[in-house]
Computed example of a mutant assay.
Amino acid sequence: MIVGLTGGIGSGKTTVAKLFSNYANVAIYIADVEAKKLINSSTSIKQQITKLFGANAYKKNILDRKYIGQLVFNSKAKLQALNKIVHPAVKEHFANFVQSNKNKDYILYESAILFESNSIEKLDFIINIYVDLEERIQRVMVRDSVEKKEVLARINNQWKEDKILLLSNYLIINSSIENTKDQVRKIHNILTKKALHFL
Rank of each mutant, 00 (worst) to 15 (best):
I62N: 10
H87E: 01
K102G: 09
F94P: 02
I68Y: 14
V98P: 01
S75H: 14
P88M: 00
K91R: 09
H93Q: 09
Q99R: 10
K78F: 04
I68Q: 12
N103R: 13
S75K: 04
I68S: 14
V72G: 02
L82K: 04
H87R: 07
S75N: 12
G69M: 14
N56W: 08
N101T: 11
R65S: 13
A55E: 10
L82C: 04
Y58I: 03
F97G: 03
N103V: 06
I85P: 00
K78G: 04
V90G: 05
K84H: 02
V90P: 09
N56R: 02
K78V: 09
S100E: 10
N96R: 06
A81D: 07
H87F: 00
Y67P: 04
L71W: 14
F94S: 04
H93P: 11
G54A: 09
E92G: 12
Y58E: 01
G69Q: 05
L79Y: 01
Y67H: 10
A55D: 10
F73T: 06
G54Y: 08
L63D: 15
Y67D: 07
K102N: 08
F73D: 01
F94E: 00
K59D: 12
N101F: 03
Y58L: 00
K60S: 15
A95F: 13
Q99E: 14
L82Q: 05
P88T: 00
V98C: 09
D64A: 07
Y58N: 01
K60A: 15
V86W: 04
Q80I: 03
F53E: 00
N96F: 03
A77F: 11
I68M: 06
H87Q: 05
F97L: 06
N103M: 10
Q70C: 12
N56C: 04
R65G: 10
A57N: 06
N61Y: 13
A77Y: 08
G69R: 06
R65V: 07
N101K: 08
